[in-house]
Nucleic acid binder design. Structure first.
Lengths: 329, 329
DNA sequence: CTGTTAGCGCGTTCAG
DNA sequence: CTGAACGCGCTAACAG
């Protein structure tokens, strides 16, 4: 393996000079910089990130924390989008990323988790899909030992940033659009998982809308489950003008139930995931770009690692009219 | 961070002794071993894998290579299963795994890929979803620079093992079961992607069956696409007694087409993925346990890294009768 | 602006 | 069976 030493020799300079060029330090003359770069090119030198990590203590080793599930392919899709976004951006920014699942943290204390991360020389992490109940993670964030970016969770401190779309506003907007279009007076709202941050934010959104417009609002817990949504729709939709769902999956459940009940109610969803095999119905939904969210998170994490202060980043979203086509089309 | 040095001091022994205990070297007295282990426990010491990687040149840093796609959630599901299986097992075996996507290798030469992997101190990799056209990967395997486990690809050399289920036999078996049950005489076979190893293996299976039983066989290329399968079924199924598909997704497409054509034909699939929202039809399928496949692959890779010779590992599979239920049930 | 040097945390001879 | 010493490849003061 060609090392920084070889490059130094070839370029006729000191090792540290090479290091400086590699890391874009200022105090290097144009001339030597050129020589070094040439040597790098000639030798096809690629710096060993492991050695760099060991040496610098502020390396670009980063973990992404994912919530695996065996429930729904929709979540697999979202996770894969997250991964693709994270890893893609990380490569561009010269960060190494390792993937960690929540299950690996199960039954571990904060200290154990900290030691595990440290043993991996990890300096920063991106947390996806965190709920309010994740006490260990909350303590981890509070400890400020690592640079952290949390997705869809409004927590910020000196070394923690939060990247999210404004869930409250998104839910408000998409429901508002649907309701205005259809002149609805009463809402059946199917909420997500209890104690999820997004669940609560979205709930706030629909509550605000109902209040502002003086609409009747019935909230039921759909747990992000298609089946639950289906059942709840059977039970309550008839007496309401619209079914607002906290996820696309639930919206599908609702639509299917409505079709079987043979009544029409506008439906709106959330997420903008890929769904197939459902007959041609339309609904309004909030389209989130999970890949971009992840890639923004990486950028933000990099900024934190480089010494930036924690902050909140709100990304935009779109309201779209989605058509769930049958495969015929 | 507590290091091996602290442990040594605490235990009253030399650093190297600690290292030996940690790595299960033979030449250590029971007495000192005990002392060291105690110190490790007291200090909550966790070895730094990055330093170990840098030092040993034969570390447990391993990459998993995945084929991302934007086509089907079914593939996302399979990939997530692979990941969960790989990472879970890797943690147990003290291996670090980094995830790499095929897209990152795009337009790179073998040398570039090799240097990239080396720059990450990677000593082994597991390759999922490789096709015959992946020339760079084939050269990488031939080079024998890394310890490699390929999934579902029958390539073996000194430092390469292959883990797969016997696709040929599985396809033969599932089709045979369906055909025997229904006394079919002619088969419509919807194959997978061209140049995929699994595609060819499965094709061999159905060919063998047709030959042995003297059945008429029509092979069409379904590209693992639900839509393609649907169209092909519309076009050809009427004249055949059974539709055998090289994937569950295609089987679904076929079933839906059959329902619309309002004719009955037995269908069989492959994969055993989670599918929902399809009305209650039954089919035979080959259930693969992707998680287990991945975890076996990790074990095998570990063996290779520890000096084992490349070999072929064939895992078992099940034939199951699956019912694609509507969400009502 | 450039080179020397001391580690980062650990694995690994090689004397003792 | 144990421990001192060197090196992995790189970064980061500190001299020059």
């Amino acid at each position: 393996m060609v090392s920084i030493k070889d490059v130094a020799k070839r370029a006729g300079v000191a090792i540290s000079t090479v290091s400086k060029v590699l890391n874009n330090y200022p105090n290097v003359s144009e001339e030597t910089r050129r020589k070094v770069n040439q040597a790098v090119a000639e030798l096809n030198f690629v710096p060993n990130s492991v050695a760099a990590a060991l040496s610098s203590k502020q390396s670009g080793r980063v973990a992404m924390l994912l919530n695996l599930n065996n429930v729904s392919q929709a979540i697999d899709e979202i996770n894969m989008q997250y991964m693709a976004g994270t890893i893609g951006q990380a490569v561009d920014m010269n960060l190494d990323v390792i993937t960690v699942f929540y299950s690996m943290l199960k039954n571990r204390s904060v200290d154990e988790v900290i030691r595990y991360l440290q043993s991996q020389s990890i300096t920063g992490l991106i947390i996806f899909g965190m709920s309010k109940e994740e006490k260990v993670l909350h303590r981890l964030i509070d400890s400020q030992i690592f640079k952290i970016v949390v997705i869809d969770v409004p927590i910020v401190n000196g070394s923690t940033s939060s990247v999210w779309i404004d869930q409250e506003k998104a839910q408000y907007d998409v429901a508002r659009k649907t309701i205005m279009e259809n002149k609805c007076r009463s809402i059946l709202y199917l909420a997500g998982k209890k104690n999820g941050y997004v669940t609560e934010e979205r709930l706030k959104g629909i509550r605000r809308l109902a209040e502002e417009k003086g609409l009747e609002l019935l909230v039921r817990n759909g747990e992000f489950s298609e089946l639950q949504a289906r059942n709840l729709t059977f039970r309550y939709a008839k007496r309401k003008d619209v079914v607002v769902c906290a996820s696309d999956l639930m919206a599908i459940g609702a639509m299917r139930a409505l079709m079987e009940m043979d009544i029409f109610r506008p439906v709106c969803g959330f997420d903008g995931i890929t769904l197939m095999g459902y007959a041609g119905k339309q609904m309004n939904t909030v389209r989130q770009d999970f890949k971009r969210i992840a890639s923004e998170a990486v950028k933000e994490l990099k900024r934190l690692i480089d010494g930036g202060e924690g902050r909140q980043i709100v990304l935009d979203y779109q309201l779209v009219r989605m058509k769930y086509l049958d495969i015929i089309c």
